[in-house]
Simulated assay, not measured.
Amino acid sequence: MPDAIAAQDPVAGFSGASFARMIADSPTLTICLRGLHDQREHRLAQALAEATGTAPDDITVQTAAGLLSTVHRILFRRIQDLTLAGHSNDEIARTIGAEATQAFDLLEPALADYAA
């Protein structure tokens, strides 16, 4: 995620004010966005399962993917909110960079030994 923030990648949420407003104002697009987040979580679970030699429906794989995906979804939403509040991408990147570190640090106790 740090690379995506530094690059102000649209996939991370840096979509611009008009696109962010369009998503925020459309229940249909908001549901579609949630579906994309769910697909990413599913793909992450598959990748973790493959990397650890476990089944994709293993509870540990599902939980690890869910935790990581939740942080990504929260940061994506935060970027959208800051965009809609009128902050520049540079300001948002600085804010989200620090917040991403804090958010992922919260996961370390839960995931530090995962797949070790």
Rank of each mutant, 00 (worst) to 15 (best):
Arg40Cys: 12
Leu44Ala: 08
Ala45Phe: 01
Ala45Ser: 11
Gln46Leu: 05
Gln46His: 10
Ala47Ile: 02
Ala49His: 00
Ala49Ser: 05
Ala49Asp: 03
Ala51Val: 08
Ala51Asn: 10
Gly53Ile: 14
Thr54Met: 07
Thr54Glu: 09
Ala55Phe: 03
Pro56Lys: 04
Asp57Tyr: 02
Asp57Lys: 01
Asp57Arg: 01
Asp57Val: 01
Ile59Ser: 15
Thr60Ile: 14
Val61Trp: 00
Val61Ala: 06
Gln62Trp: 01
Gln62Phe: 01
Gln62Ser: 06
Gln62Asp: 08
Thr63Glu: 03
Thr63Gln: 04
Thr63Val: 03
Thr63Cys: 04
Thr63Tyr: 02
Ala64Pro: 02
Ala65Tyr: 00
Ala65His: 00
Gly66Val: 02
Leu67Ser: 00
Leu67Gln: 01
Leu67Asp: 00
Leu68Ala: 06
Ser69Ala: 13
Thr70His: 11
Val71Lys: 10
His72Val: 05
His72Tyr: 11
Ile74His: 14
Phe76His: 15
Arg77Ser: 15
Arg78Thr: 03
Gln80Arg: 12
Gln80Ser: 11
Gln80Ile: 09
Gln80Asp: 12
Asp81Cys: 06
Asp81Pro: 03
Leu82Val: 07
Ala85Glu: 07
Gly86Tyr: 07
Gly86Met: 01
His87Tyr: 12
His87Gln: 10
His87Arg: 15
His87Phe: 13
His87Asn: 14
His87Ser: 15
His87Ile: 05
Ser88Cys: 14
Asn89Phe: 11
Asn89Lys: 10
Asn89Val: 02
Asp90Lys: 15
Ile92Asp: 15
Ile92Lys: 12
Ile92Trp: 14
Ala93Met: 09
Ala93Thr: 13
Arg94Gly: 04
Arg94Ile: 11
Arg94Ser: 14
Arg94Pro: 03
Thr95Cys: 13
Thr95Pro: 09
Ile96Trp: 09
Ile96Ala: 07
Gly97Arg: 03
Ala100Tyr: 08
Ala100Asp: 10
Gln102Val: 02
Gln102Ala: 10
Ala103Pro: 01
Phe104Glu: 12
Phe104Met: 12
Leu106Gln: 09
Leu106Cys: 12
Leu107Cys: 10
Leu107Asp: 07
